[in-house]
């Protein structure tokens, strides 16, 4: 069980649990700390897009970085297990913030944070709505007491990161396509990656998410066959299966070149909404199908 717990906390389990330096300081870091930083970063990104102030962009990056540090310390100090929505959402948000900072530095002149940061804030907001997981001693479900649960949850989490990135790429693709359809002057308004780059980003995200989702599904099947609590008709199971099927269809059509990039983008957005549905359906229960 301890091994399973360590696996659940994933990258935050490298030090011994009982040896946390500056525990008091860590405990003072709350969700508000990084939500405030991300909100400030978003406002500064908007200001940068509106007025073109370099100082605003630097401020946004610093604010985002401060938020990431607080976010990391929060996850490190709480070490919430990934099978619960709360920790799962916070971890996905953490990955997206890393993506935001990397993208903002790599594509300095492009509008990137304005799309990523609202999603990050939405995910953290959803995590707060779901509430913190119960104390470790109160975990009673089979999923938390076996290795298959964490494997299943981790694979689905990584697949979800792919879905989120695909979702962001799709939103940006549709926005850029709209700009080009209306023949907006290049270099004005929000500066975006090219359509080709956004399409490629979406394609890569889907290609990365699908095998992870499939592997997560297989782990889920094993888990389900041994579970007495969750049935095959559970909404979480069904929504995950639908999500997998949707991805399979998107990939097939994509490979067969039947779908235009715009349609792929729309389907990726649907996939993201299905993911959210799956999360809501499994409210107050461990995540996964």
């Amino acid at each position: 069980m301890e091994a399973g717990y360590l696996f659940l906390v994933g990258p935050f389990a490298y030090t011994k649990l009982g040896k946390r330096a500056n525990a008091d300081t860590m405990d003072r870091i709350t969700i508000f700390c990084f939500v405030a930083s991300y909100t400030l970063a978003l406002m500064l990104e908007l200001l940068h897009s509106w007025r073109g102030l370099i100082a605003a962009r630097i401020g946004a990056l610093l604010s985002g970085l401060a938020g990431l540090v607080a976010h990391t310390l929060f996850l490190y100090s709480k070490q919430p297990p990934l099978i619960w929505q709360f920790s799962w959402l916070l971890f996905v948000a953490w990955v997206l913030v890393v993506a935001y900072l990397t993208g903002a530095i790599h594509y300095r002149r492009l509008t990137w944070g304005i799309f990523v940061l609202p999603l990050v804030l939405a995910l953290v907001g959803l995590a707060v709505l779901f509430g913190q997981p119960p104390e470790r001693g109160l975990w009673t479900t089979y999923e938390t007491h076996t290795l298959w649960g964490p494997v299943h949850a981790t694979l689905l989490l990584l697949a979800s990161v792919g879905v989120c990135v695909g979702f962001l790429a799709s939103i940006m693709y549709l926005f850029q396509a709209h700009r080009l359809r209306t023949k907006a002057t290049p270099g004005t308004g929000l500066r975006m990656l090219s359509l080709e780059k956004l399409e490629e980003m979406n394609r890569r995200a889907i290609w990365a998410a699908f095998p992870l989702l499939s592997a997560g599904m297989i782990a889920g099947v094993v888990l389900l066959s041994r579970s007495e609590v969750v049935s095959w008709t559970d909404p979480r199971v069904l929504s995950t299966v639908v999500l997998w099927l949707l991805f399979a269809v998107v990939l097939f059509l994509r490979i067969a070149s039947f779908l235009r990039a715009r349609q792929v983008a729309m389907l990726t957005i649907v996939a993201f909404l299905l993911l959210l549905c799956s999360l809501v359906l499994s409210h107050n229960q461990p995540t996964g199908g």
Partner: peptide, 10 residues
């Protein structure tokens, strides 16, 4: 060329 670069990356 600016317009083309909004469509294509490479």
């Amino acid at each position: 060329v600016d317009y083309v670069r909004e469509v294509f990356d490479h």
